[in-house]
Amino acid sequence: MKITAAVTRETGGPFILEQLDIEDPLPGEVRVRILATGICHTDMVMRDRLLPVPQPVVLGHEGAGIVEAVGAGVAKVRPGDAVVISFNTCGTCPACAGSAPSYCREFFPRNFFGSRLDGSSGLSKDGEPIHGNIFGQSSFATHALAHERNVVKVADDVPTALLGPLACGVMTGVGTVTNALKIRAGQSVVVMGAGTVGLSAIMAARMLGAGRIIAIDPQPARRDMALSLGATDVIDPIGTDTVASILALTQGVGVDYSIDTTARADVIRSGILMLAPMGECAVVGAIAHGQDIAVDGGHLLSGGRRLRGVVEGDADPETFIPWLVDLYREGRLPFDRLVQFYPLAEINEAVEASERGQVIKPIILMPGTPIPAL
């Protein structure tokens, strides 16, 4: 069948709306009519080929929509079901078997290589193969081929078109706090970068009763948003020694946890230096392979401090995404305050607004999808 998709054909280039052909779902696959999809910073990292993504390609990995067709053997969902599409995994490696699918041993080939494992993508244009299967979906399109493992059925009492960001950005921020760091009531945390991931982490930290929640971001509007969502303190890093500021706020002790969403090595180094003894710094931004992080070894060793990477919030989407929907429904995770909707035809404007920091979480609406009533 014919679909409309935003195709990236050159490194750092624009998204071009093109008519493509999409195959019928193979065994284990699910064709989803996409209602909306979030734009994530990782999409820009893939566009700029800082990750091993081939071109031409259809990106997009925060899709939400309605199941239209299923391949042989699919039992989890059926046509008509509302779903959110998250990352793809093998389901059998030690990480997947141990309920840690974000560390699947086949994570890169199943999410970044632009094809199924057999080398096909399911997308083409006039016989020209177009790379797809990004995060097992490529949801910058009116329709996407996903997999039984990475579609999550969601309730229909919350607008499906709103829920795409739960698949990555919101899940990463909340999961880092609740799953990876397991922040407890009264503990302190610094969040470096108040975008979707950082603000989701702040909401989660408030929900868990963290004592001091400090947001660091250069943009006044994002610092204000952080305060409104639960931060107790905010810091403008421009012209500021952030480590000294954190130590001053904590009477020289430092914080229990720091979370880096910026993927900048200098910021990560600061995140380690502001830790109290036994503190932990989580790196969640899409830092490039080969990028070194300078660590003060004595500081790390002497206080038993820890530095770790966190992928997708250590979450299992099958159970975590429905929980996030429940939190939203209860008013405990108002992530809708972060979003702004754009039609598919304005995807480049949405990306530009995101990269300039004018919008926290753009969501692309496919033709015919109304703006959700929030």
Rank of each mutant, 00 (worst) to 15 (best):
L229W: 03
K182Q: 14
G230Y: 06
A185D: 01
D224E: 15
I183E: 06
G209E: 14
I214F: 01
M171P: 12
G175C: 12
A221P: 04
M192L: 06
L163F: 15
Q219C: 09
R206D: 03
V158K: 05
R222S: 01
V234F: 04
A144C: 10
G211C: 13
Q187N: 04
V177F: 10
G175Q: 11
G173E: 07
T232F: 00
G211H: 06
A201K: 02
S200M: 15
A205G: 13
C168H: 06
L166W: 02
D217V: 02
V152C: 07
G175E: 08
V158C: 08
A180S: 06
M192F: 13
R149G: 01
R206F: 00
G198C: 14
L181E: 07
A201Q: 04
I183C: 12
P220G: 00
A180D: 06
V197P: 10
D157K: 04
I238D: 14
R206T: 10
I183W: 05
A215V: 13
A180H: 02
A215C: 15
M171R: 10
V158Y: 03
Q219Y: 10
G193P: 08
G175H: 07
T160R: 02
G173R: 03
A201C: 11
V154I: 14
M203R: 09
P165G: 02
G211F: 09
T160C: 05
M225D: 02
G195D: 13
V152E: 02
G198N: 08
D224N: 13
A146S: 13
A180I: 12
I238F: 08
S188Q: 15
L199R: 12
L162H: 15
G193R: 08
R223E: 08
L162W: 11
